[in-house]
Design a protein around this nucleic acid. Sequence first.
DNA 1: TGACATTGTGTAGGCGCCTACATAACCATG
DNA 2: CATGGTTATGTAGGCGCCTACACAATGTCA
Lengths: 182, 182
Amino acid sequence: MSIANGEGIEPMDYTRSCGGAAIGARLRRLSESIDGDTMRAYAALGVQFEQRWFGVLNQLALNGPATVGELASTLRITHVSVSQTRNSLEKAGIVVSEADPSDARRRRLMLTDAGLALIERLQPLWRTCEKVALELTAEAGDLMAALDRLDDALTRRTMFERLMSGTTLLDDLDPTPQGRTG
Amino acid sequence: MSIANGEGIEPMDYTRSCGGAAIGARLRRLSESIDGDTMRAYAALGVQFEQRWFGVLNQLALNGPATVGELASTLRITHVSVSQTRNSLEKAGIVVSEADPSDARRRRLMLTDAGLALIERLQPLWRTCEKVALELTAEAGDLMAALDRLDDALTRRTMFERLMSGTTLLDDLDPTPQGRTG
DNA sequence: TGACATTGTGTAGGCGCCTACATAACCATG
DNA sequence: CATGGTTATGTAGGCGCCTACACAATGTCA
């Protein structure tokens, strides 16, 4: 808490110095960097593409038509996000949807010919992504496996549970109820 | 590309099956999960806190008053983001700012007493974050180090450079100039 | 048949970050 | 001291995701 020098020395990376409370920020920064560069690659190839399209397109290509809810569940994002992505994909003519005849609540998405062509066209870039991912995994030493394990760890016990569990937090926490500013 | 079954089988996690093109999405999803849970922890403790405050607050606590640009540089985010965070912090009474007497373009941020008190109050939670980060690193097998190495790898050569470099991409890429939809 | 919960999808608005652009203060020139 | 480039900050609007809420179609049960 001591107020030290205001300039001069500068830690090489704040997320490295204070890992714990900033790990979310760090992952976010990495994802934005990678997503941004990938988008730039699409643009550089003259292909109009949105990052968020990938999951849905890939699933439709692999497994055929699917509903909003099915895609959300497979992609592990909310149905809202899928719904918005669907909207964008339809506007771009890459996907069409129709009400499921057996249940009018459901909306079945399927690729258009333009969608199939787009996927075909992007295959090389996506294969390159795979290669780069391998390259990075090599350089970063087992990154993907570490992410797998992080996913697993958080599935076993969420961040929230970990933060709130007595052993780590409540022992330490000063119980004066002075908080709640707003 | 073959259209297979539309229901039934479901890969356990799409990001694991198609790692390359979705690595950004995966990191984003992880960061959102962690950030969201951390925010829930603040809320559960009755403290009104925004995730984005952390970097700036931490820096001000560690190094004393600083300008928007200095913070942006240290935190490795844009000055815009710092500027918006500053605004939010000032509205919450946690930080005040004044024009630098020697250069009126610069705005020096410093903690208020309320800001110092908030930091004091959050120390236990932040220490818990550290512990949880260590816990996760243990469970995820050297996660933080892998992230360090990923950062380094991307600094050496950006994702964009990797994607565009001939060896990986241009060899594969079908050169028909049919793209550019919009 | 009508009431009521459940399910599938959509809308509004928020998060923390971004890029592109605008503005104001500073610093050289002439 | 006017001109124009540079620097520090701010505004507008976008990204992909989120939560909270709205609503229509379906199932259930009196």
